[in-house]
Structure formats: structure tokens, C-alpha cells
Design a protein around this nucleic acid. Structure first.
Lengths: 178, 178
DNA sequence: TGACAAGATGAGTGGTGACTCATAATTTAG
DNA sequence: CTAAATTATGAGTCACCACTCATCTTGTCA
């Protein structure tokens, strides 16, 4: 499985499995069974395990995808936005996380904060905010990432209402402002 | 099992099981097996299930205990402390949570934020802080509890170093100050 | 102390979920 | 179109875990 599949149906199935996994894990959490992923993809279990020898491998592929999407979004905001881009990004991710459980998994321990910081492009956003003077002096990127991870965790498993979520995120961001 | 056990050894075993469960679940999380709890308690599995017919019952008993301890601590701080008692309590709970996984379980969805607020005595601490003017106007108890839950989650599964944990909590509390 | 009830024991049950593999079905190159 | 290689299938294996129960042990009380 080191090499990418060559046959057309194999490529199609790989994509289907990834899409199904994203849906299933976002909805039911990463404890959902591989069998359910296979069912959702319209494929047999063996096929899932052919493409991803381990459930962890499937998760990893999913995380890579998600990390890239978040990094891309951060890059866009850093490019277009002003000093508030950092806050916009933060709020957006939490809103997204509230409906998609895999984000939390991405931000969890096994990925490592340092790599997260780099991957998410948080440093660039923070630098922009510092230039614009919209962020308190001395705030570091790993703190912001940690706060983001905490907020995502809370929003997901804390059973927060949308209203409470927004108020809480606002309080959180208040702590970053001058 | 509705009535408490009457025999001396049964009472002793019940206490042992609770202590073992606290240790095991704090260390390995609530997914640790009942068998391991029994082993740690020096007791057979059947004995655990005699005292707590369900793993959930065991967890519930543990949560009740923990909630009471936290509430008691909050009460003491509210009594003795000044306007900063809220912040002290917050920081203490996060520090404790960093080494004991069950706190997160307590603060999670199935307990409900409203009951948490009341049970933790967060309202009293918040009122004290308001009187003293150490807290920003408009901050509500459920927001503080939500932030606390988020911080505990992050501290546990985010793999934060002690240093990052303290800095992050400080940022978080900054958002609550005037 | 004797005897009965309350409690303890731990192999066993049922269910679940990750992962395998012999076989069948497709794809594709020649 | 056909053969060889690649991929798909899904029943089966293995391990784990919550929970049960027939049997044995121990505390208690007369």
C-alpha cells in the first residue's frame, strides 16, 4: 500500500472511503466503527483496509486533509484580512468544530502543538495582528493554538448552545486584545 | 443494591473500589476496564458489579464525590478569599485536571452546564469578584464554567506542558478582567 | 459455637470492533 | 478478446470488555 493505486475503480473507491470517513467520524466521533465507514462508502470492509491498513492510517489521511484546508484558510485570511484576521480565523474554526468532531482530533495531543502552529499558519496571522496592534503584547502562537484547541474541545463535548459558544469565544478573544 | 451494605467487609470493599476507580480512571481515562479497577482494589470483578451494577453507576458515584469536593473548595475560597478567589479557583481546578482525567468527565456534556454552575458554586465566586470589581462587567457564570471546562479539556488531551498550561490559563483569565 | 444470610469469587456469556484471507470480480495491457 | 494482475468481497478470527451466576467464603447474631 505504499504506492498509490493505479486502477480507476481503486482511485474512485479511495476517494469515496475518505469522504465517507469524514462524514461518519465528524458525526459520531472517531470511535465509530470501520464497518460503518465502509457501509457509508458503499464498499466492503476489506476494501477500506486495503486502502488504509489501519484505522489510524485512515484518521491520519483525514487529518492531513483537514490540516491543509485550515492552513489554506489561514493563508487566505492572512493575505486579505487586516489585523482582525486572527480573530476571524479563531471564531471560524470553533464554529466549524462545533459541527465536526474530527477537528478536535486534529488539535489533540498526538499531533503536537509545534507542528500545529506551523501547519495552521497561526504565526503569520499573529504577526499580522501584532503589526496592526490588535493583539496584546507578548501573546505567543502556541498560546493561541492552545486556546483554540481548548475552545474546540469545549464546544464539542461541553454541549454548549450556539449562544453560549459565541459568548465564550468572545470572552476568550477578549483575553488576547490589548 | 438500593440499600447500603451492612456488613463490615462490604463497606470496606466499597471504599476500596471507589479509591481504586478514582486512581485508575484518573490515570487511564474512563475507558479503563472494570477488571483493572477490580485488580487495583484487590477484589474480584463480581464484587465491583455487586456494589455498582453498572460501570456508569461507578462513574456517577465518583463524579458525585468529585463535584462535592470542588464545591467545597469553591465555598472555602468564597468565604476566605477576596475578589481574586474566582481566579484562584479557576487556576486550581485546571492544575488539578491536568493530572486527573475524571475532572473532564465531570465537566462534560452529560452533566449539564446549569447544574454544574450551581454545584460548583461558581455563581458565588463570580458575585464576590463583581463586588470587588475584579471581573469585567457582563461576564456570566455559565461562560466562566464553559471556559473552565474548555481549559481542562485542553490541558488534558492537548498535551500542554506545565509552562504552556499556565500561560494559556493566564490569557484566559485576562479575558475576564476589567 | 453453629448456622444462616450477606457477600465474594472468577470462569463464562454475549456483543462489538479491528483486522485477515481465500475466493470472486474487474480492470487493463497486449 | 483474453489472460494476468489488481482490487473487491464478506464471513471468519482474535482480542477486549461489560456483565452474570453457580459456588464458595465470611461476618454476624443468637
Amino acid at each position: 500500500m505504499a504506492d498509490p493505486p493505479s486502477r480507476a475503480d481503486a482511485i474512485r473507491n479511495r476517494a469515496r472511503i475518505l469522504a465517507a470517513a469524514a462524514e461518519v467520524f465528524d458525526t459520531h466521533g472517531t470511535s465509530a466503527s470501520t464497518e460503518e465507514v465502509a457501509r457509508t462508502a458503499g464498499v466492503a470492509v476489506g476494501t477500506v483496509f486495503r486502502h488504509f491498513p489501519t484505522k489510524a492510517d485512515l484518521l491520519t489521511a483525514l487529518m492531513k486533509d483537514l490540516r491543509e484546508r485550515l492552513a489554506a484558510r489561514a493563508a487566505v485570511l492572512a493575505e486579505e484580512g487586516d489585523g482582525t484576521a486572527l480573530f476571524t480565523f479563531f471564531a471560524e474554526v470553533v464554529e466549524y468544530a462545533a459541527g465536526a468532531r474530527t477537528v478536535v482530533h486534529l488539535l489533540a495531543a498526538d499531533i503536537g502543538v509545534d507542528r500545529q502552529v506551523a501547519a495552521l499558519g497561526m504565526e503569520v496571522l499573529l504577526a499580522r495582528a501584532e503589526e496592526a496592534g490588535t493583539v496584546r503584547a507578548g501573546v505567543r502562537a502556541d498560546e493561541v493554538t492552545a486556546l483554540l484547541a481548548a475552545a474546540c474541545h469545549g464546544a464539542l463535548s461541553g454541549g454548549w448552545t450556539p449562544d453560549l459558544r459565541r459568548r465564550t469565544v468572545a470572552r476568550l478573544l477578549d483575553g488576547l486584545r490589548p
